[in-house]
């Protein structure tokens, strides 16, 4: 059972109160982009064993989207943060580094 804290409501939400939104921090490539860039955006996803960044929506609550950083193998949650950022904030990265030294996820480390 996964429990994530909604950064907007501040409540500890059960997984069943949330909608999973897939991978976080994707860069959108739309019309006019190269085929390779569009393919990368449309289909290519990380599937790590370990540190992962995801989007979640507080569906049975405020209805807002937010980001979560968690460990897919231990189910440890490093933290949740606003959806209005393009990269994980410093405190989240430090929390991950404290637990998983040398972690790397896409361009973040």
């Amino acid at each position: 059972m996964l429990i994530l804290k909604c950064p907007y409501c501040g409540v500890a939400c059960d997984e069943t109160e949330l909608d999973a939104g897939g991978e976080a921090h994707l860069t959108r490539h739309g019309p006019g982009s190269s085929d390779n860039a569009f393919e990368e955006y449309m289909f290519m996803r990380e599937n790590p064993r370990g540190v992962h960044f995801e989007r979640w929506r507080h569906a049975y609550g405020c209805g807002k989207w937010f980001h979560a950083a968690r460990n897919t193998s231990t189910l440890e949650v490093f933290g949740t943060y606003s959806a209005q950022v393009i990269e994980p904030p410093k405190d989240i990265r430090e929390a991950i580094s404290a637990k998983v030294p040398g972690w790397r996820w896409r361009d973040f480390a």
Binding site: C9, V11, A12, C13, D14, T16, E17, Y60, G61, C62
Partner: peptide
């Protein structure tokens, strides 16, 4: 509901939207 309904988490007068 999956919400934590202990008095220490949901005191009187606090709103919890849940399922």
């Amino acid at each position: 509901s999956p919400a934590d309904l202990r008095a220490s988490v949901l005191p009187v007068g606090e709103v919890r939207r849940t399922r």
